[in-house]
Amino acid sequence: MIPPHIDGFLDAALRLDAASFARIRATRAEETAAGRRDASRAPRLSAAEFSALDKRVRDVLRPRSEEFRGAPGGLRAAITVTEVAAQALWKPDVLTAAQYESFVAPFRAEGVAVPPRS
């Protein structure tokens, strides 16, 4: 059910270490505080789509929970930032170019290949 381009993103993103996720979380917090990012603008998936995404992300990250102890935002933040970026990749057509970038650019900065908004 997860589209191939989202699978590719998840394969790379879910290999990031806790420090990378902490940097992504910090970038997200800075952009939100500056008004350049609004989490409420993240595309909404159907219940079935989100369930498949959530299961995939949690199944990979939960076993690494010890790694995230003490990291800013911890495991919960890693799950959230990954799912929100995947939602933007899944439905880029409902986002402006700036909104799309605000959700995916932090992953690109950590070396994850992110397709351009089409």
Rank of each mutant, 00 (worst) to 15 (best):
M1F: 07
I2P: 11
P4R: 12
P4G: 08
P4K: 13
H5L: 09
H5I: 00
H5A: 07
G8R: 15
G8Y: 03
G8P: 02
F9L: 09
L10S: 04
L14E: 05
R15I: 01
R15H: 11
L16C: 10
D17V: 01
D17F: 04
D17K: 12
D17Y: 04
A18D: 12
A18Q: 14
A19N: 11
S20L: 03
F21V: 04
F21K: 06
A22L: 08
R23L: 13
R23M: 10
I24N: 02
I24E: 01
A26I: 01
A26D: 12
T27F: 05
T27K: 13
T27Q: 13
R28V: 06
T32Q: 13
A33W: 06
A34P: 05
A34V: 06
G35D: 04
G35R: 07
R36A: 14
A39S: 08
A39Q: 09
S40Y: 00
S40C: 03
A42P: 02
A42C: 15
L45G: 04
L45W: 04
S46H: 05
S46M: 05
A47K: 13
A48E: 15
A48N: 10
E49L: 05
E49S: 14
F50E: 13
F50D: 14
L53T: 05
L53D: 00
D54E: 14
D54L: 10
K55D: 13
V57T: 08
V57W: 06
V57G: 11
R58W: 10
D59I: 03
D59F: 11
D59P: 03
D59A: 14
L61V: 07
L61Q: 07
L61K: 06
R62H: 11
P63C: 09
P63V: 07
R64Q: 14
R64A: 13
F68K: 02
G70P: 05
A71E: 07
P72H: 12
P72Q: 11
P72M: 12
P72Y: 10
G73L: 08
R76L: 14
A77N: 03
A77H: 00
A78S: 07
A78G: 14
V81T: 12
T82E: 02
T82M: 06
V84M: 14
A85H: 02
A85D: 02
A86Y: 01
A86M: 06
A88P: 03
L89Q: 04
W90D: 00
K91A: 15
P92D: 03
P92E: 05
P92Q: 07
D93N: 13
D93M: 09
V94R: 12
T96M: 11
A97I: 02
A97L: 11
A97K: 08
A97N: 08
Q99V: 00
Y100D: 01
E101L: 14
S102K: 02
F103Q: 00
F103W: 01
F103I: 00
V104A: 00
A105T: 08
P106R: 00
F107L: 10
F107D: 01
E110D: 12
G111Q: 11
G111I: 09
V112L: 11
P115D: 07
P116S: 10
P116E: 13
